[in-house]
């Protein structure tokens, strides 16, 4: 069920501006469905961003993050063509990894 992410990485000087859009329901476990049943928690627990294989961001998320989350970060020392890879794992064990190359400044 894991849908692809939308990742943009653009170079600004020697810093890569990385913007990530993820498609995920991010259920808090508080919401009820039309029958009044509680919808179980379903959220992204960890997001790991790597730059040429080296981890630059390792986060733990909770239900407090919105549906279809957006994450932005800046990676120092990046060059055009470098690989930026993003992996998220949710509390049901679902996983998704997507990778982009850093684009030169436009």
């Amino acid at each position: 069920m894991a849908e692809p992410m939308k990742i943009r990485a653009t170079l600004q000087g020697d810093v890569a501006d990385v913007r990530i859009l993820m498609l995920h329901p991010m259920e808090t476990g508080q919401r009820k469905d039309s029958k009044g049943q509680i919808i179980p928690m379903h959220f992204i627990q960890s997001v790991v961003v790597t730059h040429n294989g080296k981890t630059v961001l390792d986060t733990q998320w909770s239900q407090a993050v919105s549906r279809n989350p957006f994450l932005g970060l800046r990676v120092k020392g990046a060059k055009a063509g470098d690989r930026i890879s993003v992996t998220w794992t949710d509390n049901k064990g679902d996983k998704r990894t997507d990778e982009v190359a850093v684009a030169a400044a436009s």
Binding site: E3, P4, K6, R8, R19, L21, L23, N68, F70, G72
Partner: peptide, 12 residues
């Protein structure tokens, strides 16, 4: 607009 979640629907 720069990071439009609608793009995810386009992909799908």
């Amino acid at each position: 607009a720069e990071d439009n979640p609608g793009e995810l629907w386009v992909e799908r």
